[in-house]
Design a protein around this nucleic acid. Structure first.
Lengths: 142, 142
DNA sequence: CTCCTAAGTTGGCTTTCCCAACTCACGTTA
DNA sequence: TAACGTGAGTTGGGAAAGCCAACTTAGGAG
């Protein structure tokens, strides 16, 4: 059988390799330069260079020059990259709850003043989404 | 420098390898048996066996026997595994919006009757979470 | 007996990954 | 001007992981 066509699989084609999401985490933290990303993730430089190139060509990051003499650039998030914030939030929340032992290594405060605990809700009704609250809708005819 | 301690990295240690999240997707779809998972993901059987073993030992899945003669089992989600649903939802949403060309391969209907578009909100105030709405809170002293 | 199914294992080959060292373009210090 | 520093990668070689097809094991069905 041929594997299921699925946007999760498509997403993982782009950001599913090792170091890709960690590189993006660093960019969200404001560490937008090659050496910062390498140091904070622990990725080897050759693999990191390959991942960044792929993320740029996939439109998740863009290379922005911030100095021409000497030529230097940083990696900035595109809209697509910014939209990955949600994925990182949920991954961190899951890691905090089920993997990391002891207190969370990072804690974030939401603009409402409270410590953030992200929750996934239906954009239409605002109710929390559980696996049981979903049914598969009709497939688009292809 | 030593890499940043982070629950995203910890989470990816567990579910970040290729095929792990796709195997979990299948279990959420109700395809809980080895051959089903292999067929629907496209993973090679040896790698899939290794991934499932790892997910079981990490407490994300559990092996449940459903027949003793012949001995047969299926993979069921634990609480930890069920909590990954949010990650898959956000990954699919991102894939639908930024990677998959054309209409989404799967559409889900929420129990409220509408097509699901998941959204991440702050559990306390219910407002949508953006990268800019967050500030880093004090680190726990270690 | 022989065939069939589920759930892996095994062997052999190919592709990635990792690490340290090197390059290259430029600026700075002495 | 020579030596040194910095940012951003490349390169080379060995180790690890991945891929595929075929094999195994434990039992049931015809």
């Amino acid at each position: 059988m041929t594997p299921r066509s699925c946007s999760i699989a498509n997403a993982l084609e782009v950001v599913g390799e090792r170091w890709s999401l960690l590189a993006l985490r660093e960019v969200f933290f404001g560490n937008t330069r090659f050496d910062q990303i390498a140091a904070n993730t622990g990725a080897s430089r050759d693999v990191l260079a390959a991942r960044l190139k792929k993320l740029v060509s996939a439109g998740v990051l863009e290379k922005v020059q911030y100095s021409s003499h000497p030529p230097r650039h940083e990696y900035h998030l595109t809209d697509s990259g910014r939209a990955l914030h949600n994925v990182l939030l949920m991954l961190r929340e899951w890691g905090d709850q089920y993997v990391t032992e002891g207190p969370p290594p990072q804690v974030f405060q939401h603009s409402c003043g409270h410590v953030l605990h992200p929750r996934v809700v239906c954009a239409h009704c605002g109710e929390e989404v559980s696996p049981e609250s979903l049914t598969r809708a009709a497939q688009p005819t292809h």
